[in-house]
Amino acid sequence: MFYIITTTVRATVNAYNSYKDPRVEHLPLVGSPLPVFGIVALYLFFSLKWGPKWMEIRKAYDLKNLIAIYNAIQVVANAGIVIFGMKYTVIHGNYSTLCQPVDSTNVQPWMNTLVKICYCYYITKYLDLLDTVFFVLRKKNSQISFLHVYHHFGMVLAVYLYMKFLAGSHSTMLGLVNGFVHTIMYGYYLVTSIKPSYGKSLWWKRYITQLQLLQFGYLLIHFSLVIFWNTCGHPLWVGILGGMQSLFMLCMFSEFYFKAYLRKKKVN
Rank of each mutant, 00 (worst) to 15 (best):
M1E: 11
Y3D: 11
I4V: 06
A11W: 06
A15Y: 15
K20C: 11
V24N: 02
P28L: 07
P28N: 06
V30Y: 02
S32N: 15
P35L: 08
G38M: 08
I39A: 12
A41I: 15
L42H: 03
L42W: 05
Y43E: 09
L44H: 07
L44S: 11
L44M: 13
P52Q: 06
P52R: 08
I57M: 00
K59F: 00
Y61E: 13
Y61W: 08
D62W: 00
D62R: 03
K64G: 11
K64L: 10
I67Y: 08
I67N: 02
Q74L: 07
A77S: 15
N78Y: 03
A79Q: 13
G80T: 14
I81V: 15
I81H: 00
V82N: 01
K87T: 04
T89K: 00
T97G: 02
L98D: 12
P101A: 08
V107R: 15
W110F: 07
W110V: 01
L114S: 03
L114T: 04
L114D: 01
C118L: 05
Y121I: 03
T124V: 00
Y126D: 09
L127T: 14
D128H: 14
L130V: 09
R138N: 07
K140I: 09
N141M: 13
Q143K: 12
F146T: 15
F146P: 13
L147Q: 14
H148F: 12
H148R: 15
G154S: 14
Y162Q: 11
G168R: 08
S169R: 03
H170M: 13
S171E: 10
M173W: 04
V177S: 00
V177F: 00
F180T: 06
V181G: 02
H182T: 07
M185W: 07
M185E: 04
Y186Q: 06
Y186N: 04
Y188G: 06
Y189R: 15
V191T: 13
I194T: 14
P196N: 08
S197W: 10
S197H: 09
S201Y: 13
S201M: 09
R206P: 01
Q210R: 14
Q212M: 12
Q212F: 10
Q212E: 09
Q212A: 07
F216G: 04
L219N: 04
F223E: 01
F223T: 11
S224R: 04
P235F: 04
P235V: 09
L236Y: 04
I240C: 00
F253I: 13
E255M: 00
F256I: 12
F258L: 13
K259I: 02
A260N: 01
L262W: 06
